[in-house]
Simulated assay, not measured.
Amino acid sequence: MEFGTLDGIIGCVAAGLGVSLLPCAIAEKYMTTQSLAFHVLATKQAQIPTWFIYYNERVLSADLTILSFTLAILSATLTILSVTLTDSIRHFDDSIRP
């Protein structure tokens, strides 16, 4: 099923028609107004690759092309930041050891 709004998604979940996977910040906003329960994913489960998929024979609109490109840049940037941060932490650990 596909919904155009978060209100539609949350409304169906609150009515018992399914489940949804949402960022904590979004889910928390609805917890006080809807009858919802939540389950926090373990760290290993929460860090999963996410794919942007679409029908193979469809030409992407300009907006979807821009979104796809932006997501690719963001993903590459986060990977670089993660590697840089890991290297910095290793360097810091080495520098404070006696």
Rank of each mutant, 00 (worst) to 15 (best):
Q47E: 09
I66C: 15
L41W: 03
A46S: 10
Q34T: 05
G11T: 03
T86P: 07
S61E: 00
T70L: 08
P98K: 05
G4F: 08
G11N: 03
L64T: 12
F38M: 14
T33D: 11
G11I: 02
C24T: 11
T84V: 12
I10D: 01
A62T: 07
S35V: 06
G4R: 09
I89V: 11
L41H: 06
G18M: 02
T70H: 13
F3W: 01
I89S: 10
D63K: 15
Y54V: 04
A62Q: 11
I53N: 06
Q45R: 04
G18P: 01
C24L: 15
S82R: 14
A72N: 14
L17Q: 07
H91M: 14
M31L: 06
A42Q: 01
L85D: 06
L41G: 05
Y55R: 13
A37K: 03
D93L: 13
L6V: 06
A15K: 04
L85Q: 05
I73T: 08
A76D: 06
L21W: 06
T84Q: 08
A46V: 06
T50M: 08
I89D: 06
H39N: 13
T50C: 12
V13L: 00
I66S: 15
D94W: 05
I89R: 14
Y30F: 14
L22G: 03
L6S: 05
S61I: 01
T77Y: 13
T84L: 10
E2W: 14
S68H: 09
G16I: 01
C24W: 11
P98V: 00
M1R: 09
T50A: 11
E57V: 14
F3Q: 02
A14Q: 07
Q45A: 12
Q34V: 08
V40F: 11
S20Y: 00
A27C: 00
V19T: 11
T86H: 12
I96K: 03
R90W: 01
L60W: 00
T33M: 11
Y30D: 03
P23H: 09
W51H: 10
V40K: 09
L21Y: 08
L64Q: 13
I10S: 01
Y30W: 06
L78M: 08
P49R: 12
L17G: 09
A72Y: 10
L41T: 04
T77F: 14
R90Q: 04
L81F: 13
A62L: 11
G8K: 00
T86D: 13
I80Y: 07
T86L: 14
I73R: 12
I73W: 10
V19E: 05
A46K: 15
V13W: 00
D7W: 13
T5C: 08
A46E: 13
S68T: 14
S75I: 04
E28I: 05
L64E: 15
L74F: 07
K44M: 06
P49T: 13
I53F: 10
L60D: 00
M31C: 09
L22Y: 03
T43P: 05
P23S: 09
A15D: 02
I26E: 00
L81M: 06
A15Q: 04
T86Y: 09
L41M: 05
D94I: 07
